[in-house]
């Protein structure tokens, strides 16, 4: 075996393979250790999303409330949805609605009152929008503005400067500066879920 060949060709390959093996083992180990917490966080986020979307005010444990009051309906044509027992005797419909955002798809949980068809709450469970811009759809002021409205929502329209002349359109909602595509995606997601909720209510 040519020593030059070993030094220039074989050693780098063997070294790289060894370092790769060590690095992958290390990352794999950390993944195994953190996996239970990561999965638990995911489930908690999903339960919290159903809770927030149905505008439930929790007094006790989230998991216990979820087990007692939430039914998942998986056989629907447009994908699964949740039925939540409201404290007031009226059930809430929580739809999972996806739509394309700026960098990837946005998954929203939209809650409706089954009696009045009014939106109870919205949470954005999964998205990869730009942190500090589009990702601000997670902030309470943005999510809470949909509560109590029936939609459908329309194109981006600012609040009139002179508030004495005319009022805001009923379908308007506050946007996030610098996140036009995200806001537009949210509008489509909301409108789609409103249509789905109507269809589900009519089919009842």
């Amino acid at each position: 075996m040519n020593p030059q060949w070993i030094k220039e060709k074989a050693t780098p390959v063997v070294f790289m393979t060894a370092v790769t093996f060590v690095c992958i083992s290390l990352v794999g180990l950390v993944d195994i250790v953190t996996r239970p917490s990561v999965d638990r966080n995911k489930t908690l986020f999903q339960k919290q999303a159903v809770c927030d979307a149905s505008a439930t005010v929790l007094s006790g444990d989230l998991a216990a409330w979820y087990d007692a009051n939430v039914t998942v309906v998986t056989n629907a044509a447009d994908g699964p949805y949740y039925l939540v027992n409201g404290g007031d005797g009226v059930s809430r419909l929580v739809l999972i609605q996806q739509g394309p955002g700026l960098w990837g798809s946005i998954t929203a949980y939209v809650g409706f009152n089954r009696k009045t068809a009014v939106i109870e709450g919205v949470t954005f469970q999964d998205h990869v929008e730009t942190p500090g811009l589009g990702a601000r759809i997670d902030e309470p002021w943005f999510r809470h503005q949909f509560a109590g409205k029936t939609g459908p929502f329309n194109e981006l329209r600012p609040e009139p400067q002179d508030k004495t002349k005319g009022t805001r359109d009923a379908g308007a909602f506050d946007q996030i500066t610098g996140a036009t595509i995200t806001a537009s995606a949210v509008k489509d997601i909301m409108n789609k879920s409103i249509e789905r909720a109507k269809a589900l209510n009519a089919a009842r």
Partner: peptide, 15 residues
């Protein structure tokens, strides 16, 4: 992975 396990909210924001 550690941020995902321990600071899930921030992990979601940082994407």
């Amino acid at each position: 992975l550690v941020i995902q396990a321990t600071l899930p909210t921030i992990s979601r924001q940082l994407g």
